[in-house]
Design a protein around this nucleic acid. Structure first.
Length: 604
RNA sequence: GGGGGUGUAGCUCAGUUGGUUAGAGCGCUGGCCUGUCACGCCAGAGGCCGCGGGUUCGAGUCCCGUCACUCCCGCCA
C-alpha cells in the first residue's frame, strides 16, 4: 500500500463503501462528542469526514488531533445514514471509520485560521501566506489563475502563435517606468536592468523573421503599488505579429479574449463584439480613456444651449474662453443625462458630492410635471430647457447635470460624476463583461511640468500619416496606431502598430526632444535591426493579473497573486528586500551611501 | 514625496461628557458529551489600549509628535 494515500480527500463516493482506504491531509476541523469524534480531513482535492468511536484502536490518538496537523488515516469507508448525509460536500454520502492514524506533522497554534476563513489583517495573511493559501477562497483563485494561463496558452498556440522566452537580465531603458537594476560583478560600475516589458525583444523577434510571437511574460517596474497594481512585478500576455495592420491584431486577439472570458464567465455575459471608440470620442462621451460601458450614460456638448443664455455663469464662461484652441483653451458645457434622477433630493446629493470633490458644484435640471425645475432651468428659460430635454431624450422623473469650463480641466471630474450618477441610480449593469477597443491615441502630449512635448503612449508606435504627418502637422494633432483594450472600466492592455522605419523613428523621437545621438545610444540595437530589413509589425500586451482579477470578481491584485509583496514592496514571508553582506557588496564593487534619517526603531 | 482611513485580547469589534478592577463574540487551554458537519454545555488563561510626549486630581477617551498597515494622488510609455 502507498505510504500516504490510496484516495484523495475529494474522491470517495458510495461506490467505495466497504473498502479499506488510506487518506492523508490536513485536519480541517475536529468535532469531539466525547464518545464520538469527527475529523474533517482536507487536501487540495476536497474534504472527507473521518469518524472514530471507542471501538477504534486509534481513538486515543484521534482525541489529540488539532487543527492543521497533517495526518495519515487508514480506515473503512462507510455509508452515511440518510439523516447524517451532508449534501454540501461531494464526499458527503460517506465517511471513513478510523482504524489507524499517523501524525505526519504537527502544527503550532495558528496565527491565521484556515477553517471558516474569517477576515484577517493583510499583514498577517502575507506573513503566513502558506496558511492563507490553504483557505478555500484564495486557493481556488490561484487555481483559476493557472487555468486562465493554461487556456490562454492553448488558445494562442491554436491561433498559430509561438511562445518564446526573452531575457530577464537586460539593458536599462531610458523612458517609461523606473528600472530595477542588478549590479554586474564582471563589469564594475555597470548594471543590468530587469525588463519593464519585453517590448524591444518582441520587436527584434519579428525582425529576426519569426512571426506571431507570444509569451506569458514577467514585467518589472520599480513604481509604487495600487490595489490593482503589484509593486515590482506583474505578468502580461505579450503578443507581436508581422505584416499586420491594426485590424489584423484586433482580429487575432479579440476572439482569444472573448472566448477566454466566456470560458470563465460563470454565467456572466461577455460582449459579442468589442466596439472601437476613438480616444477623443471616449473622452467626450465618458470622460476617460478607459470607459466602463456597463454604465449607459453618454455625455454630450450642451454649450449651444447656454451660449448667450440667461444662465449667466455658463454664458459668461463660454464667452470669455472662445477664441483659443479647442479642448485646452475654449470653454464648453457638458451635459450628463441621469435617467431616473429627477428629484431635488438626488440632485442636491450629487451637488454636495461634487463640492466634496473640490468642485464648485454640479449644475442640474430635473424634470417634473412636464417642465424643468431647479435654478439652472429658471435662468435658462422654459423654451431652451425643453429643447435641451428633447435633445437628450429625457422626460419627467429624469435629470441632467452640467459641468462647465475648459474640457481638459474638468474631463476627469466629469468621468467620475458619470460613474457616480450611474452607480447611485443603479443604472450600471452587473454580471457582465463589456469590452471595447479604444483607438487613435494621440502620439504626443504636452507636459506642463517640464514645458515640453512627450510621448503620450508608446514611443515605438507608428504615427498615423507616417513621416509626412510628423513633418507637417502640429505634433499634438498627430495620432498613433495605438490602441487599448478596456473591460468594465479596467485598462486590460495597450498595444500598437510599431514604427519600423528608422527615419520616422528618429523624427518621432526628435519631436519628443531626444536627439539622434541619444536614440542611437539608447536604442542602438533596435535601430540597427531596423536598418537590416524590418517587417511592418505590431502587437499588444494584455495584463494577466487584471484579467484574472476581473474573472475572479476581486478588486485587489493580491487576491489573485500567490506570493504578493505588500504596498511597501516587501515580501513579509521571505523577508525581501534584505541587506547584502559586505562580501557580496565587495564583489560587486558597491559601497552603500545610506540616507541619514532612516534609523528605524521597530515599534508598534 | 503628499493626502485620507485604521490601530483596544491571537482575530473581529464595543468602550457614554475624561472618572471604580477595560468588555463581548470567535479562537486557544481544561472538563463533560455517541451522529456532528459554524456540534453543544461548563470553566479558565489571555491587555504596554501601536509607541513617545503633553494637558489634567485623573487619559483607551483630549492635544502634539511618531511608527505600522491600508486606500488614493504623484508615478506606472
Amino acid at each position: 500500500m502507498h505510504p500516504y494515500r490510496t484516495h484523495s480527500c475529494g474522491e470517495l463516493r458510495s461506490g467505495d463503501v466497504g473498502t479499506n482506504v488510506r487518506v492523508s491531509g490536513w485536519v480541517h476541523r475536529v468535532r469531539d462528542h466525547g464518545g464520538l469524534l469527527f475529523i474533517d480531513l482536507r487536501d487540495h482535492y476536497g474534504l472527507t469526514q473521518c469518524v472514530a468511536d471507542p471501538d477504534s484502536p486509534a481513538f486515543k490518538a484521534v482525541e489529540d488531533l488539532r487543527a492543521e496537523w497533517v495526518v495519515r488515516i487508514d480506515g473503512e469507508v462507510r455509508e452515511r445514514s440518510a439523516e447524517t448525509t451532508n449534501d454540501r460536500l461531494p464526499t458527503g454520502g460517506v465517511e471513513v471509520f478510523i482504524r489507524d492514524l499517523e501524525v505526519l506533522s504537527k502544527a503550532q497554534e495558528l496565527p491565521l485560521p484556515v477553517f471558516g476563513e474569517p477576515d484577517y489583517p493583510e499583514e498577517t495573511r502575507l506573513a503566513y501566506r502558506f496558511l492563507d493559501l490553504r483557505r478555500e477562497g484564495l486557493h481556488q483563485r490561484i487555481v483559476k489563475r493557472s487555468q486562465v494561463i493554461a487556456s490562454l496558452r492553448q488558445r494562442m498556440v491554436g491561433a498559430g502563435f509561438t511562445e518564446f522566452q526573452t531575457p530577464i537580465l537586460t539593458a536599462s531603458s531610458p523612458e517609461g517606468a523606473r528600472d530595477f537594476l542588478v549590479p554586474s560583478r564582471m563589469h564594475p560600475g555597470k548594471f543590468y536592468a530587469l525588463p519593464q516589458a519585453p517590448q524591444q525583444f518582441k520587436q527584434l523577434i519579428m525582425m529576426a523573421g519569426f512571426d506571431r510571437y507570444f509569451q506569458i511574460a514577467p514585467c518589472f517596474r520599480d513604481e509604487d503599488a495600487r490595489a490593482d497594481r503589484s509593486p515590482g512585478e506583474f505578468y502580461q500576455l505579450d503578443v507581436e505579429m508581422s505584416f499586420v495592420t491594426q485590424e489584423d491584431v484586433f482580429a487575432a486577439i479579440e476572439p482569444v479574449l472573448r472566448e477566454l472570458f466566456e470560458e470563465f464567465a460563470e454565467g456572466r455575459r461577455v460582449s459579442a463584439e468589442f466596439p472601437r471608440i476613438p480616444y477623443w470620442r471616449a473622452m467626450r462621451l465618458y470622460g476617460t480613456d478607459k470607459p466602463d460601458l456597463r454604465n449607459p450614460i453618454e455625455m454630450s456638448d450642451a454649450s449651444h444651449h447656454f451660449r448667450g443664455s440667461g444662465f449667466k455663469i455658463f454664458a459668461g464662461l463660454l464667452e470669455k474662453h472662445a477664441s483659443g484652441r479647442e479642448w485646452t483653451e475654449n470653454a464648453e458645457v457638458w451635459a450628463i443625462p441621469a435617467k431616473g434622477g429627477g428629484s431635488r433630493a438626488f440632485c442636491d446629493r450629487m451637488n454636495s458630492w461634487a463640492q466634496g470633490e473640490g468642485q464648485p458644484g454640479l449644475g442640474y435640471i430635473f424634470f417634473r410635471d412636464g417642465e424643468g425645475a431647479g435654478p439652472v432651468a429658471k435662468n435658462l428659460g422654459e423654451k431652451q430647457t425643453d429643447q435641451l430635454r428633447q435633445e437628450l431624450d429625457l422626460t419627467d422623473g429624469d435629470a441632467v447635470f452640467f459641468v462647465a469650463g475648459i474640457p481638459k480641466d474638468f474631463v476627469e471630474f466629469s468621468g467620475r460624476a458619470r460613474d457616480r450618477i450611474a452607480s447611485d441610480l443603479e443604472l450600471t449593469q452587473t454580471d457582465c463583461f463589456e469590452f471595447c477597443w479604444v483607438v487613435d491615441f494621440p502620439m504626443y502630449e504636452w507636459k506642463e511640468d517640464d514645458k515640453r512635448i512627450d510621448f503620450s503612449h508608446n514611443p515605438f508606435s507608428m504615427p498615423q500619416g507616417g513621416l509626412e504627418a510628423l513633418e507637417s502637422k502640429d505634433p499634438l494633432d498627430v495620432l498613433g496606431y495605438q490602441y487599448d483594450i478596456v473591460c468594465n472600466g479596467v485598462e486590460l492592455s495597450s498595444g500598437a502598430i510599431r514604427n519600423h522605419v528608422p527615419e520616422i523613428m528618429l523624427k518621432a523621437f526628435e519631436i519628443a526632444g531626444y536627439g539622434a545621438d541619444v536614440v542611437e545610444k539608447e536604442f542602438g540595437g533596435m535601430l540597427r535591426a531596423l536598418r537590416f530589413g524590418a517587417p511592418p509589425h505590431g502587437g499588444i500586451a494584455p495584463g494577466l493579473d487584471r484579467i484574472v482579477m476581473l474573472l475572479a470578481g476581486t478588486d485587489n491584485i493580491r487576491e489573485v497573486t500567490m506570493f504578493p509583496m505588500n504596498q511597501q514592496a516587501e515580501d513579509l514571508l521571505m523577508g525581501a528586500p534584505s541587506e547584502a553582506s559586505p562580501e557580496q557588496l565587495k564583489e560587486l564593487h558597491i559601497r552603500l551611501s545610506l540616507p541619514k534619517t532612516k534609523a528605524k526603531p521597530k515599534s508598534g
